[in-house]
Simulated assay, not measured.
Amino acid sequence: MMKLLKINSSGRRGMSISRQKVDEIVSKLLVKYPSADVRVRDTAYDNLPFLSDHFIEAIFRNDDLSEEQRGAIQLSDRLVNELMESDIIVIGAPMYNFGIPACLKAYFDLIARAGKTFRYTEQGYPIGLLKNKKAIVVIATGGVPIGSPMDFSKNYIAAFLGFLGIEDIEFIALDENRFKLEEKEKKADEKLAMILN
């Protein structure tokens, strides 16, 4: 069974452009894969923790974890398993102050796990372990053009997902939406049609 992971990170629930587009993409994927299982991860409202001393200690130990350390990595283990089981990941990533929301960065920090989502070779070269997955990433910005010197979102997301082994990444740009929303939505719809064919 096809498994979809829907990830939102906008702090806006009702009027979020990225959330609306993520919903649309998932709906279209369900037309293509009607029996697909959809899991929802809302990083803005899941109260994901930032990395802590207990968490960092735990991920560098294989056994003899304290109760605090086990508790610290429990959520991370669940997020990693959820991601590993997914075939298509749809991410909504509005740009806040030139980068991704802090809640999405917190999520990324929790799923970057050596030995689970990536590993190092004997020479210290990282190899991503999440193969054969597709990511569709919606980036919405009010005024910053994607690909401009002020965009610290797209390349970071591409590098991070690639680090985990996800190489099939499509970006849906809804940038400069305060000035060019209609134009950008038309281009986004055209790109989506190609992706979902």
Rank of each mutant, 00 (worst) to 15 (best):
S66E: 15
Y125A: 04
L130S: 01
R41Y: 01
K134D: 07
V137Q: 11
A36T: 04
P49Q: 06
G128S: 12
F152K: 08
E67W: 05
E57N: 11
G124D: 15
G142M: 13
L130V: 04
K116I: 10
L29S: 09
P101Y: 08
A36D: 05
G71T: 11
D53H: 15
K154V: 12
E82R: 10
A36G: 04
V90L: 09
P149Q: 09
L129H: 01
A102L: 14
E67A: 11
G124T: 15
V31K: 01
G142E: 13
L51R: 06
D46V: 14
S148E: 02
V90D: 10
V90F: 07
Q123A: 11
L48W: 02
D63P: 00
S66M: 13
I111Y: 06
A36E: 07
P101D: 04
L130H: 01
K134P: 06
S66V: 15
D64L: 14
R41S: 07
I88V: 04
G142Q: 10
K154E: 11
N97P: 01
D53I: 15
R119V: 01
N97C: 08
E67H: 06
L79T: 03
D151M: 13
V80W: 13
H54V: 10
G142T: 14
V26W: 02
V144T: 15
V80I: 12
N132L: 14
V38H: 00
D46W: 11
K154T: 12
G99M: 14
K105I: 09
P49K: 01
I25T: 03
